[in-house]
Simulated scan of single mutants.
Amino acid sequence: MSKNTRKPIMAVTMGDPAGIGPEIVLETMQSEQIYDICNPFLIGHRDSLEIAAKLRGVTDLNINLISEPEEALFQHGTIDLLQTDVANDAVIEFGTIQKDAALRAYSYLVKSIELGKQGRIDAVSTAPINKAALALAEVPHIGHTEIYQALTESDHALTMFNVHKLRVFFLSRHVSLRQACDLVTRERILDYLTTIDAELRGIGFENPSIGVAALNPHVGEGGMFGTEEIEHIAPAVRDAQAQGINAHGPDSADAIFAFNLDGHYDCIPSLYHDQGHIACKTYDFPNAVTITLGLPFMRSSVDHGTAFDIAGKGIAQGESMIEATRVAALYSQMQLDHRERVGA
């Protein structure tokens, strides 16, 4: 891709068509705001999009079928649609786990990865998929992050929660709380801080300030409530500082997220799943989105599922999908501008 200040090219994937994906991507592709900040096109199936339009009472649906991103018009009022032609004859039933629905959803992700690896898109925003449906379709990966990491062969796919000014990373995620405590080691924290620093610099943060959360109440109270801060977390922060990383802490987890909102830090590495998720979702659940860094392109996702219980009723709200697409476009623009500045 040429080095300039053009708007990023954004693929939007439809997600599992048995869920609310078609409705929320339709709403996203109707958002004038999105076209102001990126050049979006949809990867999905025409029949699902047309059904979603009917459910939402959209009578002026204008679809431009494309086979390559280069054929897109990128004009608000026209939806550029790249159909993957997988399970074309499937009859999708809303609200149920179906093999064909999962095959379609997976094909959208595979296509976005193919385009991303070729440098033909800058970012992708993904609507929800269903893990049980993926398993039924014998997809060899459990979810979005695993699919993108495996198929891009990325060693350091990094999940960042973004809610307005809050940027939160996770030292551990889908493990028990007991296991999460065992994973709080000096070596893992240092490695994580190094990765966070490199990824944020890669999208334009010159010297990212990283505030590290404590594990125990009151930062362990000098060892009275646990020694992880003394034995692992503080030493890892010092190790990172010795490498030129602008890391700080550990700070008490009951206050550090407020520090981030006040501008003290650019981001917070939380030490386990709920520590960061509770802060973000309490602050603004609908606008909590996931960003995956460390891939050849920017990737974002909503922080909700396929919502089978309301699928096909025409009542799904696209606020989170629009926000996921908006945030990915903004970070992608930062990345493009940074690469232009440094001549990458």
Rank of each mutant, 00 (worst) to 15 (best):
A132I: 11
E114P: 01
D122V: 01
K131Q: 08
N88P: 01
L109P: 00
L115N: 00
H141L: 11
A123M: 12
I63V: 11
N62D: 13
I147W: 00
T152P: 03
Y108W: 11
L81V: 15
Q118G: 08
K54A: 11
K117V: 02
E93K: 11
A137P: 04
V86P: 02
R104D: 03
G95I: 01
T152F: 11
H144T: 10
Q149S: 15
L81T: 13
R104L: 12
S154K: 08
L73C: 08
I79P: 03
L103W: 04
G119N: 07
A137F: 06
L115K: 02
V110P: 00
G119T: 07
K131R: 11
V110F: 11
Q75S: 10
A137D: 05
A105G: 07
T84I: 09
I121S: 02
A150D: 14
P128L: 12
A127I: 05
A72S: 15
A90D: 04
Q75G: 07
Q98S: 15
S48N: 14
E71A: 14
I121L: 13
L158Y: 06
A90R: 02
E146L: 09
E153R: 12
Q149P: 01
L81R: 09
E70Q: 14
Q149M: 15
G143H: 06
K99S: 13
V139M: 02
K54V: 03
I113K: 07
A72C: 14
Y148G: 00
P128C: 12
A137V: 11
T126C: 14
I121V: 11
I129Q: 01
Q118W: 07
I51D: 05
E93P: 03
D122C: 02
T78V: 15
G95E: 03
A127Q: 00
G77F: 14
V124M: 02
A133G: 11
H144G: 04
A87G: 09
G143P: 01
A132C: 03
D80H: 12
E153I: 09
H76Q: 12
L61R: 05
T84N: 12
T59H: 06
R56H: 08
Q75Y: 03
Q75M: 13
E138F: 05
F74I: 14
A135P: 00
E138P: 02
I63F: 10
R56A: 08
L55N: 08
S48Y: 02
L61T: 06
N64Q: 10
A132M: 10
A137N: 04
A101Q: 04
T126K: 01
V139I: 14
S107P: 07
I129N: 04
A132L: 11
E93G: 06
P69Q: 04
V124I: 07
P128W: 05
T96R: 13
N88Y: 10
A105H: 07
I113V: 14
I142R: 09
A90M: 10
I129G: 05
E153G: 12
K54W: 06
N62G: 05
R120F: 01
D47Y: 03
A72H: 07
A137W: 03
E114L: 12
I121A: 07
I129V: 14
L82C: 06
L109F: 09
N62R: 13
